[in-house]
Design a protein around this nucleic acid. Structure first.
Length: 425
RNA sequence: GGAGAGAUGGCUGAGUGGUCGAUAGCGGCGGUCUUGAAAACCGUUGAACGGCAACGUUCCGGGGGUUCGAAUCCCUCUCUCUCCGCCA
């Protein structure tokens, strides 16, 4: 969440930022926060003064009892009743205002960087780079769900039987391809200096709040009610929450972690061609990269992450483009975000395979993830960043569709050491 | 699932109603000594909020209560550990 400091010291900038993100009622919400903060400060000031008085009196009473002066002690006791009641009331005012501020802040999204383009939706995103080459497909190319059936790689109906729609069963070379991609992505991340983490795929509510999925996306996560636990929608949640309530040393930064996990998303409200085949699943595999960094260095970290993701798509020989998302299309918590899309030849559409975001201090403030500066030992909020590197299903969709030939589906050279086969036929 | 124990500062671990934000050890930082390092010795070392500052307030798992005063007493919740049972 935004810090009170940001809101009180850069009010206009915050409001402008929220407007850029198309957050309704920005001005009202911010003004409300500021007023509540004033109320809180006033209450605290008064309370602190009275509490100091109370502490003095208590010590005095203790001293009287020690020297056996009961009369003086009782007289002093009599003075405490009013003080106590006043303190109680002021404390109530204070915690009340605090709670309201906190609740309000949870509902206010992050503000975008200047670099983020104006806009309300996908059509306003800025294409910053195109790469890779479109392949020449045979006559009447098949979409990946047909190819999956033709070569018996992925069984969607079987998934429906066992679980439900959106939970496919990978079989034979289809399953091996999944494992190959996971290992390929993890190895590449390791080469780029990321430490591998294997986190739990079920998290508590505190972790959900830490990274901002709660309360914003409550309905999008699978929830185990009996234990009040959530299935993770991305490894970002457990891996970033490693650093919840942690004070790091500046020398440790940037921290670079990666993790492969299954991801679970309810995707309530999705429909149509968007959900066909592998385009949108309830469970999928993803390798995520996560960084914790200083404010000064986070931009460079972000650039490095973008370069890393791009190198994966180049290695897989897929046509791709990189988008800088506009204010209205970015996630709740992001300050700046780039999407990577691959071109699916048979569907003739772009598929999002990665989102690489810098959250500035927004997540760190919720997480209480801070670091101590080398220079003057100050405690400051970290910046957190993460990105998919990469999500499997749409990569598989594009690989199958773009590499189909009369002979079968060709596996890109970089992946062959991992699959152990060159052709799916 | 049954029984028991526990939760204190970066860590270990004292503290059972009154200058306790908290003894001590380890670790960290600074210094003395040293060509350098180690050892030894000395000093220092939590966070949040308010305040220009001096300083004040709060925090000993969370919440509530008793009291002039709570780390310490009471209630409650959560979590952890040990033993037994079950089990990949």
């Amino acid at each position: 969440m935004l810090t009170l400091k940001q809101i009180t010291e850069q009010t206009d900038k915050v409001i402008a930022g929220l407007n850029k993100k198309h957050f309704n009622g920005a001005k009202e919400a911010i003004e409300q926060v500021i007023n509540l903060d004033k109320t809180r400060r006033a209450a605290q000031k008064q309370k602190d003064a009275l509490a100091a008085e109370m502490n003095k009196l208590s010590k005095q009473i203790g001293a009287y009892f020690k020297e056996g002066n009961k009369e003086a002690a009782e007289a002093a006791k009599a003075q405490t009743a009013d003080l106590k009641e006043n303190i109680r009331q002021l404390d109530e005012q204070m915690t009340n205002a605090e709670q309201q501020i906190h609740d309000l802040l949870l509902t206010i999204p992050n503000i975008p960087y200047d670099l983020v383009p104006e806009g309300t939706g996908a059509e306003d995103n800025l294409v910053v780079k195109m790469g890779g080459e479109q392949t020449k497909l045979p006559e009447n190319p098949l979409p990946h769900w047909e190819l999956a059936k033709k070569y018996d790689l992925i069984d969607f109906d079987l998934g429906v039987k066992i679980t439900g729609a959106g939970f496919p069963v990978y079989k034979g070379k289809g399953a091996k391809l999944q494992r190959a991609l996971i290992n390929f992505f993890l190895d590449r991340a390791q080469e780029a200096g990321y430490r591998e983490i294997m986190p739990p795929t079920v998290v508590n509510a505190a972790s959900g709040y830490g990274t901002g999925q709660l309360p914003d996306k409550e309905g999008q996560m699978y929830h185990c009610e009996v234990d009040d636990l959530y299935l993770i929608p991305t490894a970002e949640v457990p891996v970033t929450n490693i650093y919840r309530d942690v004070i790091l040393d500046e020398a440790q930064l940037p921290i670079k972690n990666c993790a492969y996990t299954e991801c679970f998303r309810r995707e309530a409200g999705s429909y149509g061609k968007d959900v066909r085949g592998l385009n949108r699943l309830h469970e999928f595999s993803k390798v995520e990269i996560v960084r914790i960094d200083t404010p000064e260095h986070s931009q460079q970290s972000h650039d490095e992450m973008l370069a890393h993701v791009e190198s994966l798509l180049v290695a897989l020989e897929l046509p791709y483009r990189i988008l800088r998302l506009c204010g209205g299309d970015m996630s709740f918590t992001a300050a700046i975000c780039y999407d990577f899309e691959v071109y699916s030849e048979a569907q003739q559409r772009w598929l999002e395979v990665s989102s690489v975001s810098n959250f500035d201090t927004y997540q760190a403030n919720r997480l209480k993830c801070r670091y101590r500066t080398d220079e003057d030992k100050q405690i400051r909020l970290c910046h957190t960043l993460n990105g998919s590197a990469l999500a499997l299903p749409r990569i598989v969709a594009a690989l199958l569709e773009n590499n189909q030939t009369e002979r079968g589906i060709h596996i890109p050279a970089a992946l062959q050491p991992y699959t152990g086969f060159e052709w799916i036929d």
